[in-house]
């Protein structure tokens, strides 16, 4: 037996005449925090629902701990879900909501009492047992939804944009807390979001999806630093993406300039796409740079300045720097080899 807990093999899903998922292959390890990331309509929620058993794949198989579970209904899977907008039962109080799954399993009353208490401690809501659902804040409802799922001791927890309804500050706090909870309970979390920052902060691995296909799977750092294609580069973080030509190993031509880089393994004169992150570009005096440009806008962002520099060929470079340049100033740009990331065209 391998140590994968959830595996999807050749999953496709067609709604009506529209394919929402095309040939998804995915393996998720025990105790992993995996995030499905992509814009709305990319198929991430459908993927999650197929794992949860709420949706049947049109073709392909779902494995749980090495066993095929295609036709096993949701309530027989050792998987629980935290729903979008929580789906807490409005006619039950906090205790009854959390105890719902345990009562269904006809577990001893004392045990239920104990477990619910423990869960409330886990999500930092001790003493909330008798509160009504509609008397709770969004963040509190969120925690109850997590507790309600976790109390059943699932091997996998599915979270469908669980923080989407919270405001920014609360969301940041919950991100950290969710990660802590995951580490404490030590089970697999499969998380769906369209927020790239959320995905990068919390995940062990990120799966970037677009239009029903997986674009890239990898650690957050890898996804950020080495996106495989234009879509991923554009979706994750901010970046300057340009067309380029790989002259030979370690040498790329962009904007009519030949720059050294660290990438190799491309064909001679292969057309490629080049990503340079805004924080990796250095602004120097006009004649000290690799290329010249003029600053056309400067915006103060708190920690850094966000500047737009137009080069001689008319490309607008986005640059983040803690040093401010003046609008209209002639500047030079320096890009070190390490900052240049080459992507195959049309990948």
């Amino acid at each position: 037996m391998n140590d994968y807990i959830v595996e999807l093999k050749n999953i496709s899903k067609i709604f009506g005449d529209k394919a929402v998922l095309c040939d998804i292959d995915l393996s998720i390890k025990q105790k992993e925090f995996v995030t499905l990331l992509g814009p709305s309509g990319c198929g991430k929620t459908t993927t999650l629902r197929i794992i949860g058993g709420f949706e049947h794949a049109t073709t392909g198989d779902v494995y749980f701990e090495g066993k095929k579970v295609n036709d096993i209904p949701p309530f027989k899977r050792q998987i629980n879900t935290v729903f979008q907008k929580y789906a807490l039962f409005p006619h039950l109080n906090v205790f009854e909501n959390i105890a719902f799954g345990l009562k269904i399993k006809k577990i001893d009353k004392d045990v239920i009492q104990e477990k619910v208490k423990e869960m409330l401690r886990l999500v930092n809501l001790q003493g909330f047992e008798n509160r009504k659902i509609d008397s709770l804040s969004g963040g509190q409802q969120q925690r109850i939804a997590i507790a309600r799922a976790l109390v059943n001791e699932p091997k996998v927890l599915l979270l469908d944009e669980p923080l989407g309804a919270l405001d920014l500050k609360l969301r940041k706090g919950m991100q950290i807390e969710l990660k802590k909870i995951q580490q404490r309970v030590g089970i697999t979390f499969i998380y769906v979001t369209h927020d790239q920052e959320e995905a990068l902060t919390m995940s062990d691995r990120v799966i970037v999806m677009s239009e029903g296909e997986i674009q890239q799977i990898g650690k957050p750092e890898d996804i950020y630093n080495e996106p495989v294609n234009r879509f991923v580069a554009d979706f994750i973080g901010e970046g300057n993406i340009l067309d380029g030509c790989m002259l030979e190993d370690f040498s790329v031509k962009i904007q009519e300039k030949v720059l050294p880089c660290v990438d190799k393994g491309f064909e001679k004169n292969e057309m490629v796409e080049v990503l340079v992150r805004p924080e990796d570009i250095e602004i120097v005096r006009e004649n000290d740079g690799m290329m010249k440009g003029i600053v056309i806008s400067v915006i103060f962002k708190g920690v850094h300045y966000e500047m737009e520099v137009k080069d001689e060929l008319g490309f607008h470079w986005m640059i983040h720097s803690i040093h401010m340049s003046k609008k209209g100033q002639q500047v030079g740009l320096v890009i070190v080899p390490d900052a240049i990331h080459i992507m195959k065209k049309g990948a």
């Binding site: 709420f54 949701p74 629980n80 729903f83 789906a87 719902f100 309600r148």
Partner: peptide, 23 residues
């Protein structure tokens, strides 16, 4: 009624009869 609630109950192990009676 939010279809989500029914799914949530099923997710927590309720059978169709239990979903009806409890939700």
């Amino acid at each position: 009624m939010d279809e989500c609630l029914i799914e949530a109950a099923k997710d927590l192990g309720a059978t169709s009869t239990q979903v009806f009676l409890k939700i």
